[in-house]
């Protein structure tokens, strides 16, 4: 007889309850909140954050962290805008270059972390500097994107019944989400990520290819944040070197609220999706409310983060007690 509520499932259960609770609470308080259009806007307005958070989930599952994701959003956004608008490149080629940048940065992070055992937060902090520096070097001013293909992409959407529509960024987000769920559950790579988070030394002794996996994880995070930057640029129809400032924190918050343990090993992509939804609901609710200011979002996220971290602490302690 399988139990539905196990200790491993507790965090994601809590996340689901919080998500549903917030949604219902907002829905009963604000008129029109329950509409399909609002629900699909959760996706469109947070696609970039979601894509970044998915990549970051893998990193955090290994017990690491990537602080460079927000800066990468700025870099890839300004790079695409610059190449397309100032250099008149084909947008697809420009995007490929931006994704390549993300991969290379991730490769550097992963190499330093896996081969020299440097602290992930330090290495990726340096990555943050590097990206911001390069982005500002390209252009300090924000660049408007007027390329027809790019504007088409921004306005592209699949109409759905009920006045809702699925934008290109939401489609991308959902695609990334599905691929990530598959990778984390059904591939040796995904399982190795979890095993490393459970204990790096054990993972080595079990014969897993730990350094390769770590490098791949950071590359994945780099590519995801570059893609997030591209989506962000399409969404705002511009590239901005300081775009995505502080987004690393939102992404980390989404991952943790989604039930992924910051010490690694426990968590899920689906949880991160719920975490992004929670952030989106809070944001939308605050907009709907009208009188509350936008900074309440940050405070609410911070408080939620604290509650979840305390809860995780409790779970970890309880686990230690039973195995000791």
């Amino acid at each position: 007889m399988k139990r539905l509520i196990t200790r491993e499932r507790l965090p994601i259960l809590a996340t689901s309850i919080v998500c549903l609770g917030l949604y219902l609470l907002s829905g009963f308080n604000f008129e029109g909140f329950f509409s399909l259009r609002v629900a699909f806007n959760f996706l469109t307005d947070n696609a970039f954050l979601g894509i970044i958070a998915v990549g970051l989930t893998f990193v955090i599952l290994t017990g690491g962290i990537d602080l460079s994701v927000g800066a990468m959003v700025g870099l890839s956004g300004i790079l695409v805008a610059f190449l397309v608008d100032s250099k008149h490149w084909n947008p697809i080629a420009a995007m490929a270059i931006a994704l390549g940048c993300g991969a290379v940065l991730g490769l550097m992070h992963g190499y330093l972390i896996a081969k020299f055992e440097l602290a992930p937060f330090l290495v990726t902090l340096a990555g943050l500097f590097l990206c911001r520096g390069l982005a500002l070097w390209i252009s300090k001013a924000s660049i408007q994107i007027k390329d027809p293909l790019m504007t088409d992409m921004a306005s592209f959407h699949v109409g759905l019944p009920g006045g809702a529509s699925l934008s290109l960024s939401s489609i991308l987000f959902i695609a990334v989400l599905l691929i990530a769920i598959y990778a984390s559950r059904q591939t040796t790579f995904g399982r190795a990520v979890f095993a490393i988070g459970g204990g790096k030394q054990s993972a080595v002794l079990m014969g897993l290819r730990v350094p390769q996996t770590l490098i791949l994880v950071y590359m994945l995070s780099g590519v995801c944040s570059a893609l997030g930057g591209i989506v962000f640029a399409i969404y705002t129809s511009s590239g901005n070197a300081i775009g995505g400032t502080g987004m690393e924190l939102d992404a980390i918050a989404a991952v943790v609220v989604g039930g992924t343990l910051l010490s690694g090993g426990y968590g899920s992509i689906l949880g991160t999706f719920l975490g992004v939804l929670i952030l989106a609901i809070i944001q939308t609710a605050i907009t709907f409310q009208g009188t509350l200011s936008s900074w309440w979002t940050k405070i609410a996220i911070g408080t939620l983060l604290l509650i979840f971290m305390l809860m995780q602490r409790g779970i970890v302690k309880a686990t230690e007690r039973t195995t000791a």
Partner: peptide, 11 residues
């Protein structure tokens, strides 16, 4: 945590 919420508090 404070890095996330701190700027919100300041605002």
């Amino acid at each position: 945590l404070l890095m996330v919420a701190g700027r919100g508090l300041a605002q």
